[in-house]
Write a protein that binds this DNA or RNA. Sequence first.
DNA 1: CCAACCTCTGAGGGATCTCTGAGCCGACGC
DNA 2: GCGTCGGCTCAGAGATCCCTCAGAGGTTGG
Lengths: 250, 250
Amino acid sequence: MLVSAMNTTRSGRPALTRPDGTPVRVLVVDDDPDLAEVLSGALRYEGWEVRTAGDGAAALTGARELRPDAVVLDVMLPDTDGFAVLRSLHEVKPDVCVLFLTARDTVEDRIAGITAGGDDYVTKPFSLEEVVARLRGLLRRAGMARQAEEGPRITVGDLVMDEEAREVSRAGRIVELSPTEFELLRFLMRNPRRVLSKAQILDRVWSYDFGGQAHVVELYISYLRKKVDAGRQPMIHTVRGAGYVLKPVL
Amino acid sequence: MLVSAMNTTRSGRPALTRPDGTPVRVLVVDDDPDLAEVLSGALRYEGWEVRTAGDGAAALTGARELRPDAVVLDVMLPDTDGFAVLRSLHEVKPDVCVLFLTARDTVEDRIAGITAGGDDYVTKPFSLEEVVARLRGLLRRAGMARQAEEGPRITVGDLVMDEEAREVSRAGRIVELSPTEFELLRFLMRNPRRVLSKAQILDRVWSYDFGGQAHVVELYISYLRKKVDAGRQPMIHTVRGAGYVLKPVL
DNA sequence: CCAACCTCTGAGGGATCTCTGAGCCGACGC
DNA sequence: GCGTCGGCTCAGAGATCCCTCAGAGGTTGG
């Protein structure tokens, strides 16, 4: 019988692993150290091995040493631009996945070139849920998903989410959700039966530069309830003074 | 009043240890020496090895020497801010868990991203039970729990508490509890068959700045009895002149 | 340029929680 | 027996937490 070391995330979920069972390796390249720190924290939380770099030169060194499966790459770097780094990266490791971080006003045609190569991008300011989800998608499509259960769909009770199709259904009936509602529900569904505080939700679902109050979370929970729980047995529960839980109906 | 420091390991319950069986190591960073002392007393009471530091520089030195598994870190430090310390800590020891202490009014300020990495925070004024519980949660998720049976749930007789789902059930039936009731019961359940004085309970379950009387403890014990013991064989017993005990029904 | 949609702010109101005060009861000592 | 003390419970005030509505401002797509 084949026994491999069980690789789990800090959250207790089974981690997405490389074909040989070792953790996925990701290189984070951003010149803002705070942002790099937050990103690498979120990725380590997924059970992945992370290394950071602050500029293009460091990125290449890091890539040679870590030999990452994926790279999170800021387009704006102090020494070079992201596309030059991309070319060098592909020389070092041709099959690496790249997730670009771009400013909102980055030129369109350059982005078109990215997605054509199978890579992906997110625009700043982004939410951590989105970055993690995109990375998971890239890795999965690159054949990195060793999990049978780690498909593109999440199921909690009779609630089903297809991440790729961005489609949610409860008891077979399609539920239409706005982008924020979708991300909030995804976060809840990836952490079922666990109480999530409003701060946790804010940190994870809202952009890192969101300055607003935790009140928005209440508001969006109320939207979700109207759409997901409407008339049915409620799955979204409030835990007063603590946060919210998503629980399948028993 | 504040609980006095105790250096003994709590008897009757196996301490949470590192994978190699040595005690968990925690660094406490706060510029208020009284608070640091109270905290380290509570953590030593858990059987953990504790060291304190008063500012960011001392925190780094301490981290390098102690190589802690977790750090309790005040966001407001005389020399640096929490984010910078977090980054340095992760450089010293990438897998360290951090529990931030923040004032209530700075909550919205810059917590963003902190809980995203799997780290956590509590707002001042906090209760020691809460700090210890959060730390235990962090350590458990980081794979530090060499627990024999130290899972996310505590069991005493037919009474079961799931800390992550914040759910309590007696004989299979869900019991709804308010935040304070929950913390009080958690404290009782973590110390079964042991008489706990009202002063002990106050020091541990209520915030350190609570100025009220021990009468509240009686009141909350009475609430708990109504919900937990309701109609069943009582598990919560009064020891006149000494305190309360939680005992499984024989 | 307009319409539809999305996101967020602010305010109101309702439900729940916490704690105080007071009365009651039983245990214990004299 | 009787008073005292410790503990239990009820009732209610005040605070807090949470939900919802209404609408402003921004974005998107036609």
